[in-house]
Every structure is written in structure tokens, then in C-alpha cells.
């Protein structure tokens, strides 16, 4: 819940990440160099230029540039649980669509989200989940004929 002034330190960490990513890009450029069209052109140019600039910018952020400070709001416990829950449900939703099919996945995910995000009770969340799934089913699958994954139960 505490909000503290921050910036420089976090931005320096960002600079380090930038250097690492830039170095990775330079490695990729080196791998791509044999597939060039000519010495100034080919798939290696852009990774090389972008990688080099990322390294330069990263170094500047770490050693030279003073970035403006900013406030970081830390979420309280309740909000933290909500956020984490949402992220977990989204990943689970992704898995469920592929494995159980769009319809079942949407029932489960929207139920979970109404529970976690909206904070509704079991019944209300279930009813809302049923409604949104039904509406989406009619609109997407019945009216628009969008082919969505059906999963192991074929629904």
C-alpha cells in the first residue's frame, strides 16, 4: 500500500535488461550474416542495428542518463490476489479452450472471473457466466459461423 518515490534504480535495471536483449539481438545478427543478400543488406541488418542501439541505450541508462523519478503504487493484498487470480484464470482459459473447447472454457473462465474480479457469489457468478457464454455462442458460432476450437468433448 505504500507508495514510494523510485525511478533511477529501477530504470538502471531496465538498462541492464536492455543490454542483455541487445546482445541477444547481435548474436542473432551474427547467425543470420551468412544468409545475407550482400554486405549491406539482408536479414541480419535490422537485428544488428537494433541490437547495437539497445546495448548503447542500455549503457546510457545504467551509467549516464538521469531519468525522472516516478511513483510506484504497490497493490494491497486484496488487489494483489485479484490480479494474480486474473492472470492465472487467463492462462487457464487459454489451456481450457484448446483442451476442453471454447464453450466449456468460456463457462469456466467467465465464472472464475466473475468470482475473482467482480467478487460475486457462486450463484450470481454462475448465472452471469451462463448468460455471457450463451450470448457469445449464439453470436459467434450460430450467427457468424466462426470456427472456434471444440476440444475433447466436441462442443
Amino acid at each position: 500500500m505504500k507508495a514510494g518515490a523510485a525511478g533511477m534504480k529501477q530504470d538502471r535495471i531496465g538498462g541492464v535488461v536492455s543490454i542483455a536483449v541487445g546482445a541477444g539481438s547481435l548474436v542473432e545478427a551474427a547467425i543470420l550474416y551468412p544468409f545475407r543478400l550482400n554486405s549491406t543488406s539482408g536479414d541480419f541488418v535490422m537485428p544488428g542495428v537494433v541490437g547495437a542501439l539497445l546495448v548503447v541505450m542500455g549503457l546510457l541508462l545504467v551509467f549516464v542518463v538521469k531519468t525522472p523519478p516516478f511513483e510506484i503504487e504497490r497493490p494491497d493484498r486484496k488487489a494483489g490476489i485479484q490480479m494474480l487470480g486474473t492472470i492465472v484464470i487467463l492462462f487457464a482459459y487459454w489451456w481450457a479452450i484448446s483442451e476442453l473447447g471454447y464453450v466449456i472454457g468460456t463457462v469456466l473462465a467467465s465464472f472464475g472471473l466473475f468470482k475473482v474480479v467482480s467478487g460475486y457469489g457462486w450463484i450470481r457468478a454462475a448465472v452471469y457466466a451462463g448468460i455471457i457464454t450463451l450470448v457469445l455462442y449464439v453470436v459467434l458460432i450460430q450467427l457468424l459461423n466462426i470456427a472456434l476450437p471444440t476440444g475433447i468433448f466436441n462442443v
Binding site: D11, G14, G15, S18, V21, G22, S25, L32, F35, R36, L37, S41, G42, D43, M46, P47, V50, G51, L53, L54, M57, G58, L60, L61, V65, T67, P68
Partner: peptide, 24 residues
């Protein structure tokens, strides 16, 4: 911060390059 903006721009380029290269 322009510096942070430029790093983000470069990162955007980087992600756009994921996939099959245009010439080879």
C-alpha cells in the same frame, strides 16, 4: 523520459522481427 521511449521503440522493432526474415 526520451531514453526509455527509445529503448521501448527498439524493443518494438525487435519483437516485429520475430518470424521469417524478408529476404532469406
Amino acid at each position: 523520459s526520451v531514453a526509455k521511449g527509445l529503448v521501448m521503440g527498439l524493443a518494438g522493432y525487435l519483437v516485429s522481427m520475430v518470424g521469417v526474415g524478408p529476404s532469406s
